[in-house]
Design a binder for these strands. Structure first.
Lengths: 267, 267
DNA sequence: GAGGGCCACATGTACCGACAAGTTCAGCGA
DNA sequence: TCGCTGAACTTGTCGGTACATGTGGCCCTC
């Protein structure tokens, strides 16, 4: 039987719990530059001594910073301060006949940024998920073509992109369902078969990764995903739905709307 | 001195740690509908019995689900499955002279959705933060006007919106720096003073909330923020920079690009 | 010099115990 | 009836211990 010293003050200026004090102190030191991005924090046992707290308590504090996305931990190595180099994507420029959104566009973008692109690719036929079938305006469960892309930058998993085409479209453009790249780009290929994309509807949201996504993109706790759903329309109906998942902290999506001649070339 | 039974298998088909098994099992049950949104999970001690694990281990498992944004916990009550009613924002329609992005637009939108809007408002003059001054193309630290809005939906904190105007703009449109609403909307007010916004540049990203944001928006762990930066331009230069932070899981931002006549009124 | 084994140290998992503090409700008393 | 108190739940915090497991470097051997 033992007695622990717990918090005593119950007034308004409540002392935060110890694990939070640890988190706050370390967060301040990280923000102040004492621990710059890429550097390593002291070990749990060192911090335990410094804060006069048990290793469990220190771990809770570090856990807060991990779930804030400030640091990562790796077994055997320690805690490292994360760096945040963001990658810019210009969404409103992505797709047109001259600059289709295709593997090539991605390759070009990444290469221009001085990084090394790499992607894996897969084609499947399967019933469309509910949210996709609603957007493609087809019956739930109707067959659709999924063209799936898993993209890397400098061998770091970067994004997954799943494009669904409604089943009826395959009748008119059979190569959609065939494995392998479409060299001229799907947008161009469809246009050549009389299906021209004239507009699209984008939806953006954020959420924490599902276990699947965490595995595919090798993200740990504290890294939110940026979700981008693009539904493309011909003059008469929806013809595709693309769902892209990014690491939200490493990507920024841009839209240019209206007259931006004043923006010039800078930035 | 005691001995614990720990995992033994070291082969490829590695058994996941127990806390993860707990998380996976509960996640499946939530997905399956056994615990629908709004319902409560069994208590830690019940789960402890069911999974033959200590309360700490069960807590770790639940912590995984919390940081995935699937559940929330409240002291004295238990764990509740979160619901995800998303709120739609049409970004590409937001701003023009007839439908300015103003408190009114927000009020209208929320009321139309059958919810109750409420907002607090504040005006300040202060040096522009670095990221803002870059976008407004003014010297870092130059004075700027901040018009800050904290918005609620049904008394739930929903978003914060900070709009910065460059200091030089105040000379031509002094009411910007005065506290209180500008009834006709700032866009209209600026247009009446010869400053017309002809285009804007949007940047979207996601990250975990800072402690400040967590406080203002009352979000717990596992809820990512959706960040929206909009820089508005006149014909010759940037005239404003709006930074909006949303709960990423409860909001969806939409963009309409090109000809969407096929989309019709539905959805 | 190259390779392997081993040790030191990092975090990861799992258990135990105790007490603090928020919520609900039955039950008691004015 | 109303209001308060306390019991019985809940989760939150903090401490301890033991052992598993990943990493890197030292050192010995071949």
């Amino acid at each position: 039987m033992y007695r622990q010293v717990q918090r005593v003050r119950h007034d308004d200026g409540m002392t935060p719990p110890k694990y939070r004090q640890v988190a706050d102190a370390l967060r301040r030191e990280i923000d102040s530059g004492k621990y710059p991005p890429g550097s390593r924090l002291p070990s749990e046992s060192e911090l335990s001594g410094r804060f006069d707290a048990s290793r469990n308590t220190v771990r809770s504090g570090l856990g807060v910073l991990v779930s804030e996305g400030l640091i990562t931990s790796s077994q055997g190595l320690g805690y490292e301060v994360r760096s945040h180099e963001v990658f810019e994507l210009n969404a409103s420029k992505f797709e047109n006949l001259n600059f289709p959104q295709n593997g090539d566009a991605y390759n070009t973008d990444v290469t221009n940024a001085g990084r090394r692109p790499h992607q894996t690719f897969r084609v499947e036929m399967l019933p469309a998920p509910k949210d996709v079938s609603e957007r493609l305006r087809i019956e739930a469960g109707t067959k659709s073509v999924l063209r799936f892309c898993h993209r890397y930058v400098d061998d770091v998993p970067w994004s997954t992109q799943a494009t669904y085409y409604p089943g009826w479209l395959v009748e008119e453009a059979p190569r959609l369902a065939e494995p392998g790249d479409i060299a001229e780009g799907t947008t161009r290929y469809l246009a050549d078969h009389g299906i021209t994309q004239v507009g699209y509807f984008d939806e953006l949201s954020a959420r924490m990764p599902t276990p699947d996504e965490a595995r595919l993109l090798e993200v740990g706790a504290g890294v939110p995903m940026l979700l981008w759903m693009r539904t493309g329309y011909s003059e008469s109906k929806p013809i595709r739905c693309t769902i892209t998942t990014f690491r939200g902290d490493l990507n920024r999506m841009n839209y240019e709307i209206g007259d931006l001649s004043a923006r010039g070339e800078s930035l």
